[in-house]
Amino acid sequence: MPPKPRKPPPRKQSGNRNLLIAAGAAAAVVLVLVGASLLLRGGDSSGGGGGSGGVTGIEEAATLLDGIPQDRAVLGAPKAKVTLIQFEDLQCPICRRYQAEGFPGVVESYVRPGKVKLRMVGMAFIGPDSEKALLYTLAAGEQGKLWQFQDALYANQGEENSGWVTDALLEKIATGLGLDWAKLKKDADSAVTLQQANSMADEANQKQIQGTPAFYVQVGDQQPYQVNPSSFDPSAFASILDDALSS
């Protein structure tokens, strides 16, 4: 008996059926993912004081920096051997993260004991809010509270270039820190403050800073050198600063 001819495999139907199955499964997966994303999204990590809601971080800034000497953009004992130079933009969310995670540890372990001083080099390259924030922060230096103002401003940071640096927010921070608001406003508009901001921009340009935050360490009067902490954990800064102190 001759062998029965084999039926050709139903490839066309098989391919189309598989494609339909894939598309159906994909649609279901997308529905689940989008639904979960909208309903159960992670916590909003933006600081977002933004001037409309309550202002936070004032007490914390005052407590953290209480009793530490500061001279405009320099925080800490003038005779400290090592200077940690911070290039930052007050609108930069990564700078805010450093401020929250790394800065307090550096202040408590190195600045308060007088081993290290910090120097802020403010940049205003993200957008218009950066410039306003920087000028008011520098102006707070005229009343000896640049660093408290900077810290509180980071705690209330809003979305980039959203107009979050409002007069209302600045005034609440200023009055919360015990600053003279009228003087602060006047100083922020002054030629001296603008000059300070421009010289910081020049320094950043000279060092070809492409993004923030960027850190340099200066030992005594030696040439500053760039450092790249592996994380914002205080231990990452500890190894950098201990090396500089022991050099």
């Binding site: 999204r41 992670g42 969310p93 990564i94 957008g127 492409q210 914002f232």
Partner: peptide, 23 residues
């Protein structure tokens, strides 16, 4: 996140930092 830096105009870090960056 420290591997990410803020650059002129901002943007990337805002997306990475948004509440939609995690599920």
């Amino acid at each position: 996140p420290e591997a990410l830096i803020c650059t002129a105009g901002g943007g990337c870090e805002t997306v990475q930092d948004s509440s939609y960056a995690e599920l």
